[in-house]
Amino acid sequence: MDEVTDLLAIELSHLNKVKPVLLGDTLTKLEVIHDLSLVIPKGEVLALIGPSGSGKSTLLRMINRMEEPTSGSILLYGSDIQHMNVRKLRRRVGMVSQTPALLPGTIEENISYGPKLRGEPCDAAHFLDLVGLEKSLLQRPASALSIGQQQRMSIARALANNPEVLLLDEPTSALDQTAARNIINLICHLSHRLALTVIMVTHVMEHAKAVATRIALLVHGSLIEEGEAVEFFSDPTTEAGRKFLRGELFESGD
């Protein structure tokens, strides 16, 4: 039993999330996630795909408890995250947002932010090197970086906490094509080198194909299709999956 839980980084079971949303000036309730169960084995890179508004980001944000599920449970290596100290959980489960967030100060201060909160030392140069940025940048303000570099720095900052799981919320959506491809290559490289478990939300099929070992397809908050990336890309089992591969499911706005 213990061996099994050791192999499963994340287990989501019967997750539901109902959120209040404002449509114009009226408050309505939206079922963002519907009875979702999914396991993510250790060391896998899961691409969470689906049209915009399908609940991908919400699902991601529940895994490091930036939001709470309405019902259901999330286990991290067999332990329910509801019973964990939130801040300890967030150190173990890092997150990188869509638009890079710059903290005040130098690049070094940005990268060492997490460890410094706990009074631990941080080899910022090492993490900068890990994401392919020059060490000479350490003392520059974070705002001096290009947006692509800022996103690299955000990844370095998340890695500086030595997380076991890394959550990436459309990490390339704010970037141009070249910068986006570089970030995807970096994520590929890092997941191999650090044996990280990665969950990446994306709506770009090429990116999912380039980086993912597993795929989960969400539509309207429900898990439609899930499995090995290789199998999914060669022979998707659902109509929604085939649509996704033809690029039809996206930009539907929802």
């Binding site: 801040r87 947002s97 638009t99 967030a101 903290l103 997490g114 906490n161």
Partner: peptide
């Protein structure tokens, strides 16, 4: 919001993240 949530996600307390 983005900055505050980035700090929270790195393990900051609400008070630390709201610092600025």
């Amino acid at each position: 919001r983005n900055e505050v949530e980035a700090m929270l996600a790195l393990g900051a307390t609400a008070k630390q993240a709201a610092g600025e």
